[in-house]
Computed example of a mutant assay.
Amino acid sequence: MSGSGFNLGLDDASRAGVYEVAAGDLPVLAAAARDAGLLVRRLDLDGCRDKRALLLRIATVLDLPGGRGGNWDALMDALRDLEWLPAAGYVLLLDGTGPLRASLPREFDALAGVLQEASAWWAEAEVPFWAFMDGAAETTDEAP
């Protein structure tokens, strides 16, 4: 049993991906991910009014090296690298996605696609890379 009492199989890279969850589940997922030895980063997307602000918020939270993540391709490259954040696996918890989905649906879909692609890339290396988004989205799967 894990220290928090939660063992959700988050160390299984083959199950990792982008999932929608209730906002209240994010703290439980954070605890389970830490217990599984994964690096957890929480992204509060509330207030992101455009693509530039969204990418800057992600770059800041992930501590991307300078010049990385300025567009979708650069973000994808950075997410496939993460050498500055060595870990057995990664969990991104995305908060405040509702306003982003409503005001910037193309950017939201692009972000979900980049995260899914990063997860698939890491799965080939048998490293779990999860993204959990609060709320509903057509571009995500159901939670594990």
Results as ranks from 00 to 15, higher is better:
residue 11 D to L: 02
residue 48 C to Q: 13
residue 88 A to C: 05
residue 95 D to P: 02
residue 121 W to C: 01
residue 23 A to G: 11
residue 57 R to A: 05
residue 119 S to T: 06
residue 12 D to G: 02
residue 19 Y to P: 00
residue 130 W to E: 07
residue 66 G to E: 10
residue 82 L to C: 03
residue 25 D to S: 14
residue 113 G to V: 00
residue 35 D to E: 06
residue 139 T to Q: 12
residue 142 E to K: 13
residue 103 S to M: 08
residue 46 D to A: 12
residue 2 S to H: 01
residue 56 L to D: 13
residue 121 W to E: 04
residue 129 F to D: 09
residue 130 W to V: 01
residue 57 R to T: 15
residue 81 D to I: 03
residue 126 E to V: 01
residue 90 Y to N: 00
residue 38 L to W: 13
residue 131 A to G: 10
residue 107 E to V: 00
residue 17 G to Q: 07
residue 124 E to G: 11
residue 22 A to K: 15
residue 104 L to I: 01
residue 80 R to K: 11
residue 143 A to D: 03
residue 102 A to Q: 13
residue 109 D to A: 14
residue 32 A to N: 04
residue 49 R to Y: 04
residue 24 G to M: 03
residue 133 M to Y: 12
residue 42 R to T: 15
residue 5 G to A: 03
residue 109 D to K: 13
residue 11 D to N: 13
residue 140 T to Q: 07
residue 135 G to W: 12
residue 27 P to N: 11
residue 25 D to F: 06
residue 68 R to K: 13
residue 29 L to D: 05
residue 111 L to R: 06
residue 26 L to R: 15
residue 139 T to A: 14
residue 7 N to W: 06
residue 132 F to K: 01
residue 101 R to D: 00
residue 4 S to E: 03
residue 117 E to T: 11
residue 131 A to Q: 12
residue 101 R to L: 06
residue 18 V to A: 15
residue 36 A to H: 09
residue 135 G to S: 10
residue 5 G to D: 04
residue 2 S to F: 00
residue 139 T to K: 07
residue 144 P to L: 14
residue 119 S to P: 03
residue 93 L to V: 05
residue 65 P to N: 04
residue 68 R to C: 04
residue 82 L to A: 04
residue 40 V to Y: 14
residue 101 R to G: 00
residue 135 G to R: 02
residue 113 G to L: 08
residue 99 P to A: 10
residue 98 G to D: 15
residue 23 A to V: 08
residue 43 L to N: 09
residue 34 R to T: 12
residue 107 E to Q: 09
residue 135 G to Y: 09
residue 55 L to Y: 13
residue 19 Y to K: 12
